[in-house]
């Protein structure tokens, strides 16, 4: 597939936004159960949520660049019963609304209505809103992942690992960003968040590596033989019917060399995983925001490359029909 930058930014930005939110909420839950030594104040939650919201909003903006007719974007909510894209279009704003509410709850420091769970535990509205938002965040990961994973003939995508990757990579980048953010607003959380970020990045590495390994062994189900229905071992296209290119030669083919593709793969494998883990470790140890910022920057850049690669690697069977001009 031809990687579309609008979609690359959309998915990486909202992934980071979702992850960041999940990080914030994790902190809140941990605090609730007093697993954390220190309680971050509203100065942590509200701006953090705002940041997550901003990322989601940016992602949303990026997504509009993908649409030929953005002014009709609202129509995309119509087919939620069948279309993962439609579901994403519903869940993303819902999740944004939830984050907005979460932000409001923290910003306004709502204490009421609270729910008492037993004697020791009283749950503030933010916790309940956060729970709902968390569900939506996971739903959003699922939708985003399924948009790709549900197209069965894009074999590189059609695997649960796609959903897992969206989840893990979004989570990892969000936690990395949270670590960086905590460095500025709640330094005592840095080791906690940094640790989680490293763990998620590690798991993300495993799921992503698993999908790379899986894809390396994929055998295309379609061939020129099935594409044109001629059963002969040697079928070669000599002409695709037009010469100056068309939508079908632009949208589904990245047009880069194999070497370039391989280079991007190594770039993302390095930038998105070991580098941020190392930088996180160093940043946490040294208490250096710069290193943490570098960790996030490296990881985000790595994920841009990862997403580019994700598209480029997917080999669409339609390309069987568009191989040669004459």
């Amino acid at each position: 597939m031809q990687p579309a930058f609008s979609v690359i930014f959309l998915t990486t930005l909202i992934g980071a936004g979702q992850g960041l939110f999940l990080a914030l909420y994790t902190v809140e839950l941990y605090s609730l159960f007093e697993f954390l030594p220190a309680q971050p104040g509203p100065a942590f939650y509200a701006p953090g949520t705002a940041l997550a919201f901003a990322l989601l909003a940016l992602g949303l903006v990026a997504s509009f660049f993908h649409l030929g007719r953005p002014e009709r974007g609202w129509r995309a909510a119509a087919r939620w019963r069948t279309s993962w894209l439609s579901r994403e279009v519903i869940v993303l704003p819902a999740f944004m609304a939830a984050t907005a509410a979460y932000w409001l709850a923290h910003w306004a420091d709502w204490r009421e209505p609270s729910v008492a769970l037993g004697a020791a535990l009283t749950i503030a509205p933010s916790v309940a809103i956060g729970a709902a938002a968390t569900v939506l965040a996971f739903a959003l990961f699922l939708c985003t992942g399924m948009i790709y994973a549900c197209i069965k003939f894009l074999q590189e995508w059609a695997t649960p690992l796609t959903v897992a990757n969206y989840l893990m990579l979004g989570g990892a980048s969000g936690f990395t960003l949270a670590t960086l953010f905590a460095g500025r607003t709640a330094p005592e959380l840095v080791p906690f968040l940094g640790g989680w970020a490293a763990v998620l990045t590690g798991i993300g590495f495993l799921t992503r590596a698993a999908s790379l390994a899986r894809n390396a062994g994929l055998k295309p189900k379609s061939s020129l033989q099935t594409a044109i229905g001629v059963k002969h071992p040697r079928v070669v296209q000599t002409a695709q019917g037009f010469m100056g290119g068309s939508f079908n030669t632009r949208e589904f083919i990245h047009g880069r060399t194999r070497a370039f593709l391989r280079a991007i793969k190594w770039i993302f494998l390095v930038l998105a995983f070991p580098v941020p883990i190392a930088l996180l470790g160093a940043g946490v140890a040294a208490g250096s925001s710069t290193l943490l910022a570098a960790a996030f920057a490296a990881q985000y850049a790595g994920l841009l490359a990862e997403r580019w690669f994700f598209f480029a690697q997917a080999n669409h069977p339609q390309n069987l029909y568009y191989q040669a001009i004459a």
Binding site: M1, H66, L67, G68, R69, P70, R72, G73, R75, A76, A78, S83, L85, I147, I151, F153, L154, S222, S246, F247, N248, E251, F252, H316, P317, Q318, N319, Y321, Y322
Partner: peptide, 21 residues
């Protein structure tokens, strides 16, 4: 109704949809 998201073209294995530029 079409918003030009191209998703349907990704979901067609035959390469027969074209966005009108």
């Amino acid at each position: 109704k079409c918003i030009g998201c191209k998703y349907c073209s990704w979901a067609c294995p035959y390469g027969v949809r074209e966005i009108d530029e």
